[in-house]
Amino acid sequence: MLVKRIIPCLDVKNGRVVKGTHFQQLRDAGNPVELGKKYSEEGADELVFLDITASNEKRKTIVKLVKDVATELDIPFTVGGGINHVEDVREILLNGADKTSLNTAAIKNPELITEISARFGSQCVVIAIDAKRNYSSSKNKKFVQTLEGKCWFEVYIMGGQQPTGIDALSWANKAANLGAGEILLTSIDRDGTKKGFDIELTKAITGAINIPVIASGGAGESEHFLHVFTDAKADAALAASVFHYQNYPIPKIKQYLKEKGVNVRI
C-alpha cells in the first residue's frame, strides 16, 4: 500500500539552513549537507530544499550546494527557489534533484508549469502555494467555515510578503490542470508556530484536486501529523522547526502514526 510521507524541509539562506515564524525572524538551524544526510538516514521519505536567498548572482553557489546535498541522499529530492525558466530546471535536475518546486514564478507565468511538465514530466513539477486566511468579504472567492469564522485562503508570493488576491483553491485547480504533479501547501498563519497544520485549508485543497497534496506549516508534535493525514487527507506532511530545533526524531513520529493505524514506511 502507498504510505503517507514525512518530509523535512531545509530553508536555505546564504548556505545555511534557517527557520522563522510566519516567514519572519529567521534563525540558524545548521548545515544543509549534514542535516540532509541525517534526515535521510533517520527515515525521511523525501527531502525538500528551498533556496530563500534566490538572487541570481548566487545561483552557482546554490547549484553546487544542491549537488553536495544530493550526493548524500538516497531518497527523492525536491529543490525550489529562483527557478524561472525551463533551463533552470534542467540545471537543477542534472545536479541531483528529482523535482522542482515553483512558487512566485508560476503565479507570474503559469505557462511555465506546462512547459516544464511537457519536457520533464508532471512528477517533476511541484507547485508551492503559500496561503493565508482572509476573513474580509470578497467576490468570487470560495469561503470556508472555520472555528475562527468564515474565511477564504489567499495566495501570497515573494516569500509570503505579497498578497495576490488569488484564491488558493482556484489556483491549485488551475495548476493541476496545467500539468503540476503535486501541490506543496503552506499555511502562513501556522508557519513556525508548532500549533498544528491548518486542517481547514488542507482539507479544502485535498477535496478540490486530484493530485497529491503536501501539507506544511505548524507541525509541532506527532498528533499534528495524525490529524493532517486522517482529517485533512493530506498525502504527505512537511515540517522544519520540529525537526531542526526540537530534535524530534522522524522514527518517533512514524511509530506513533503506525500505532494509530496510518500506513507509514518504517
Partner: peptide, 8 residues
C-alpha cells in the same frame, strides 16, 4: 491518482 507517486 496518477502518477502513482510515493513509497509502496
Amino acid at each position: 491518482k496518477t502518477p502513482h507517486m510515493g513509497w509502496n
